Amino acid sequence: MFDPVCPSDLSPIRFGDKWSGMVIRCLRAGPRRFSELRVPLRGVTAKVLTRSLRILERDGLVLRRAGAGRVEYALTDLGRSLLGPMDTACAWTAAHWDELLDAREGAGPPATG
Rank of each mutant, 00 (worst) to 15 (best):
E36V: 07
M86F: 04
A91G: 06
A68S: 15
V71H: 09
G60W: 04
C90N: 09
A68E: 15
P31H: 09
G67H: 05
R80Q: 06
T88R: 14
V39H: 06
T76R: 02
R54N: 12
L75Y: 01
G84A: 13
E57A: 13
G69W: 07
A46M: 10
A94L: 11
R54I: 02
C90Y: 12
R58T: 10
L41R: 02
I55H: 06
T50F: 15
K47I: 15
L49G: 06
P85S: 06
R65C: 14
V71M: 09
V48N: 11
V39M: 07
S35Q: 13
A89P: 02
A68L: 15
L56S: 00
E36M: 10
G67E: 11
D87M: 08
A46L: 11
C90W: 14
A91N: 04
V39W: 02
G84P: 04
A68D: 15
L83F: 11
S35G: 10
G79D: 02
L75K: 01
R28V: 08
V62F: 03
R33M: 15
G67V: 14
S35H: 13
R64T: 09
A74R: 07
S52G: 05
L53G: 00
L41Q: 06
L53W: 00
P40C: 10
T50D: 15
E57M: 13
L82G: 01
D77R: 13
G43D: 15
V48W: 03
A91E: 05
K47P: 03
G84M: 07
G30Y: 07
R70W: 15
T45K: 10
C26H: 02
P31Y: 06
L61A: 04
G67F: 03
L83S: 05
V71N: 05
A66G: 09
Y73Q: 03
R70K: 14
R38Y: 05
A46R: 14
S52F: 02
R64C: 08
T50W: 14
R70S: 13
Y73D: 05
L78G: 08
D77M: 11
R38L: 14
T88P: 01
V71G: 06
V39T: 12
S35W: 13
G84N: 09
R32E: 08
L63H: 13
D87L: 10
R51V: 10
M86T: 02
K47Q: 15
R54L: 11
G79Y: 03
G69F: 10
S35M: 10
E72A: 08
R32P: 01
R38W: 04
R42I: 13
R51W: 11
V44L: 11
G84E: 11
S52K: 03
R25T: 04
L61I: 04
S52P: 04
S35P: 01
D87V: 05
D59Q: 12
G67D: 12
C26K: 00
L37I: 08
C26L: 04
G67K: 09
W92K: 12
D59R: 11
A91P: 01
W92A: 12
T50P: 09
W92P: 02
C90I: 14
